[in-house]
Design a protein around this nucleic acid. Structure first.
Lengths: 117, 117
DNA sequence: TCGACGTGCAACTCTGGAGTTGCACACATT
DNA sequence: AATGTGTGCAACTCCAGAGTTGCACGTCGA
């Protein structure tokens, strides 16, 4: 097991930043739906220009959420579940940690109250 | 108007937007660590002003990631795991869905290749 | 009652990111 | 060779949000 839950969350922060934008999430939805697509194709299905899509795809690629594969003169993008899954696990672990801490706090508070009486 | 299949504007997008900022994540770490804290106290442990912290806490509160409780003249904030856990589950489900779709695509591609031979 | 402390509100500045347009280059098809 | 189509690069505009400062209001202890 690698130590998680501490501050060192490098991949996670890129993923979170990437997912924060609704256009990028929509892009991911389209990609997951089609399996593979080019920036030009994707731009046709979105209310933004191709260049905007290209930039978003670059961010998603940087976060490891998509892969880019050159085929002839076009670049085909596809979704990449690993980074998303890793972030999901990180969040779940964090939520569990919070729960644990809150339970401890509550227990201590109740003990203190018993002492006060 | 838009056809994004995800029905209502889920709490997820608020959580993702909130988690996108590193200062807010740091704030959540501090809160989880201390259990409870005020904006003034938290600001002392961060390189930003109290007002900045207050704004961040407002965002986190809006995303359901923290709770605010007034105690006398101060406001105590605490971490709230539910929203985080829900988002983690959403992401995990999405990753699984991507995996499923990719497996299908791969299967179809292999079948097509067999036909081509 | 008075001062100290914490909070709330408002009016700013400023940078990053989302989006655009225009053009040049690369690769196919005829 | 000529043309159409998809990418890549660069120089913009624009605005949401991260951060600041200043001051007024409420609350607690002396």
């Amino acid at each position: 097991m690698t130590d998680e839950g501490r501050g060192a969350a490098e991949p996670v922060d890129g993923v979170l930043a990437a997912l924060a934008d609704p256009t990028r999430r929509q892009l991911l939805d389209l990609l997951a739906e089609q399996g593979e697509a080019t920036a030009t194709t994707l731009a046709e299905r979105l209310p933004v220009s191709r260049q905007a899509v290209v930039k978003h795809l670059a961010v998603l690629d940087g976060a490891g959420l998509v892969t880019a594969a050159r085929v002839g003169r076009e670049v085909r993008y596809a979704v990449r579940p690993a980074a998303l899954d890793a972030t999901a696990r990180w969040m779940a672990a964090l939520a569990t940690d919070w729960d644990r801490r809150l339970a401890t706090i509550k227990r201590l508070a109740e003990a203190a109250e018993r002492d006060a009486r």
